[in-house]
Design a protein around this nucleic acid. Sequence first.
RNA 1: GGCCCCGUGGUGUAGCGGUUUAACAUAUCGGCCUGUCAAGCCGAAGAUCGCCGGUUCGAAUCCGGUCGGGGUCGCCA
Length: 609
Amino acid sequence: MGEKLLKDHTCGELDISQVGKLVKLSGWVAKRRDHGGLIFIDLRDSTGLVQIVFDPEISVDSHKLANQLRPEWVISVSGEVRLRPEGTENLNLASGQVEIKISEIEVFNESKTPPFYINDESDNVDELLRMKYRYLDLRRSKMFSILKLRHKIVRYIRRFLNDKDFLEIETPILIKSTPEGARDYVVPSRLYPGNFYALPQSPQQLKQLLMVAGVEKYFQIARCFRDEDPRSDRQPEFTQLDLEMSFVEQDDILSLVEDLYSGLVRELLPDKEIVFPFPRLTYQEAIDFYGSDKPDTRFGLLMTEISDVAKQSKFVVFSSAVEEGGIVKGFVVPNGSSFSRKKIDKLTDLAKMNGAKGLVYFSISDSIKSIDDLDESHVKSPAKKFFNEIELKNLFKKFHAQPGDLLLLVAGNKKIVNNSLSELRLNLGKELDLMDPAKLNFCFVVDFPLFEWDENEERWNSMHHPFTSPAGEVGNLSDFPPDQIKSTGYDLVCNGLEIAGGSIRIHDRRLQEEIFEILGHSLEDIRSRFGHLLEAFEFGAPPHGGIAGGIERLVMLLAGTENIRDVIAFPKTQSFSDPLFESPSEIDSDQLNELGIIIQENRKNSEEI
RNA sequence: GGCCCCGUGGUGUAGCGGUUUAACAUAUCGGCCUGUCAAGCCGAAGAUCGCCGGUUCGAAUCCGGUCGGGGUCGCCA
């Protein structure tokens, strides 16, 4: 250790208790306010900001040098912590009671004028520019605080699971392509020309093999890779909390997850309201009431299906929808009768964008006291003429609608009706300010179907993944139609976001093969793709299950940002490029030769960077 | 792969067919200034409007293409 430290205090720790102390600080110039005589500088380090003062009466040389200082220069200063003169305290600053009178200064590094304001809290700088200069963007306290929050979240998870005797085990990044699910990222092999590794879409099979290995309790903060088109909440590489346990049933995993996530929120964001224990909804309930398997339970606007009534209706839109195997469903917007025609048109457009043929509404006048007093003159609706007074009353009573309410209904194919109603509900929840930002409404969704029908490929698909065990007594699967089989899968949902998903796994070779067969794989196919896993199941595989949760989504939820790039230190753009490193990029022909790869000329991206 | 939005000094915006030598704010540079903290005041410099082509007497402005960015549907077992 040298005698002179480059800093003996941090900017953020200085307060009234340090008055009189001689301190040495190092950091970045955040702001300069030059009064000619006095020069004020906000000095920033990773812990915060403090005002330092250059006064020619204290040090002429330092004051002179301070004249040259510009934003983002890296300096080291020494001086005395002093109470600010009365009336000049800055309450917006943690260290705003004090300031440092500087007697010595050293410049470590100058800085060019930054391409955007580092201190500007408003986010209206072009994101591409921010990404190109990510190391500058991350200096902004808003961005840095998200990095810190992410660290704290992961640290909490590690401690929590460590205390419960989980082992953190790393699994390979270079593994095998199992073309099932998302598109793989692949890496060419030099030693086996023409052969490729794939990057893991998740460590699913590896963690199951760890269970067979007898680990019993495993977790990993695992990087995953999926080459699918991104969204505002997706990136090609992302991180999952991956965990797995042996000798457990669904309740064991759910209560562990409940303790983990609730404890995490209580420790890191004690101001947030959570409901504990987390409510459990069946998949069917989620779809019935919310039209979605990831419901935002912070507000009502719950749905009711009226297909049985609609079937008898003279209104052809309703009756024909049901006759064609569809449903009629809707929800009540309290006091929604005041909505303008324009607003209802916008809602109709939203329903149509989600596949609905239209939106049927009934606006109930608030001039009556009770639905019992209602006659046809109190109702506004394009479909009014198809309903008599009694039918209207019955309809409204079924929805528990009150005078002044607006009833929204959609008819048609089940999936479309649920999708469009769900979007309508979320839209109205937002517009009517029903989504309380103080609430984190976690809930579990359970009892998923094991399979869902893939319309495009005309085959059954796993709802979760093919390693998910069917629920209940496992008899002969083939005795049931696939869509009636329930799974042991479960999701953790919060405020309408899927936070984690998992299941009890299959640990029996026969059953696993049977599932693959239902999914339409040939026996040969199964053996070549999943042979290693199936074989492992023949060597004493314990019953096991687990869950995987997206770290980015969790950080987004807790940080209150809707942009996944904000929670990743070095993210990629929506077109998968990295403006900082300018990747992806071409590689040397030597490298290609070594790998035995020839690039098709017509496929090359001709754009030279 | 489809659709929608955006692209003007360093940054953020205005201008949307001709009094525009492209405006404003901020940053930058110079000067003044001992209590500021979005410091202030005075002055200066800085963009030919992403790129290519077309329409027009005339294009930042209209049209087509292209590139880049964002969002979304498909996709994400």
